[in-house]
């Protein structure tokens, strides 16, 4: 058991995290997402399975890409989608998360897609509303749809997840993407590695089901997948690593470092990228990169998740 024993309120109604999903749950979602990829590649991209249903994207933390991806996913399923951006700075003091949740709940949506800067906030909100909730990222906790889209991308290229060597590189400490990926990849039987300076690794990382490396050449040796993480700007200049140039020198993915991975290794990044910080442009745009495909899979995975949660509840499940 590598995750906390109590699982989050996942299952039928909500998707709060990868924790609590069984390998079978994950595989089912990936299979469903595979079918949604086909939908998105048709000329006519719209299904009607969620016709008349309302999806609200509630983003307490700005994110153009994830919000657009969820919006498109909802629309392609036929739902009415509304975006609410509540940049944390503009939330008036006094209006708590719970107040916001209750207000939106009163509008009787069928689905809330929530991103929040604080770990656990989405689960808290899910307790207070009557509809399904999808976690679009909560603090440094989880970002389950990102891990699912990463898995779908990998599976389409490698045919499987089990026994692949996946190296997750960079700011694991602050990364919800890393946590969700560690959980998912372990659940499906991959060998997970993390590569980072120790100042960017969480306490107890060696007990989180990963092998820990502090050097890229060692961590990438024989890797099937190299997953780069974004380094936030405010963490680049002295607080966690000394400088951008030093970080890039030792931990940025360039051709020389990538050469240690398998020749057919995939390069991934959850975006948005800092070119020249964690990844060199030639790699980001090179033949090993599947970064754009990740964006495409993102829409498909989110369609699958939404359809699974509220498409099912349409069949009599409240």
């Amino acid at each position: 058991m590598i995750a906390p024993a109590q699982s989050l309120p996942t299952g039928r109604r909500h998707l709060i995290g990868i924790a609590g999903l069984s390998p079978q749950d994950i595989t089912e979602l990936l299979d469903l997402a595979e079918a949604e990829v086909a939908v998105s590649r048709q000329v006519e991209k719209k299904k009607s399975v969620l016709k008349g249903r309302t999806q609200i994207n509630l983003f307490f933390e700005a994110s153009t890409r994830t919000q657009a991806s969820f919006e498109l996913a909802g629309k392609r399923l036929g739902a009415d989608v509304m975006n609410m951006s509540v940049a944390s700075s503009s939330v008036k003091k006094g209006e708590t998360l719970i107040d916001t949740a209750m207000t939106l709940n009163a509008m009787r949506p069928d689905l809330l897609v929530v991103r929040h800067h604080s770990a656990g906030a989405v689960a808290l909100l899910a307790q207070k509303v009557a509809c399904s909730v999808v976690n679009a990222g909560d603090g440094a906790h989880e970002h389950p749809t990102q891990a699912l889209l990463d898995a779908l991308t990998i599976r389409r290229h490698k045919g499987r997840i089990a026994r692949l060597v996946v190296a997750i590189c960079g700011d694991v400490l602050h990364s919800r993407v890393a946590r969700s990926n560690i959980l998912l990849l372990n659940a499906l039987g991959a060998e997970v590695r993390v590569v980072a300076p120790s100042t960017l690794l969480p306490s107890g990382i060696d007990q989180m089901g990963v092998r820990v490396f502090r050097r890229m050449d060692e961590g990438l040796k024989g890797a099937d997948v190299v997953m780069m993480l974004r380094l936030q700007r405010e963490r680049m200049e002295g607080a966690f690593v000394p400088s951008v140039r030093e970080y890039f020198r030792y931990f940025g993915l360039d051709a020389a470092k990538l050469a240690h991975a398998k020749p057919d290794a995939l390069v991934m990044h959850p975006g948005p990228m800092n070119r020249g910080v964690e990844i060199a442009s030639e790699i980001a745009d090179g033949p090993a990169s599947v970064i754009e495909e990740q964006v495409e899979m993102g829409v498909a995975v989110r369609m699958a998740v939404i359809e699974h949660l509220i498409g099912l509840s349409a069949e009599g499940n409240t």
Binding site: P4, A119, G120, D138, H141, E142, S203, G204
Partner: peptide
């Protein structure tokens, strides 16, 4: 408390 439990929850820990 800083440690494995905090790390899974994604909460900043106090050493």
């Amino acid at each position: 408390n800083e440690g494995l439990y905090a790390s899974w929850l994604g909460l900043p820990g106090i050493p």
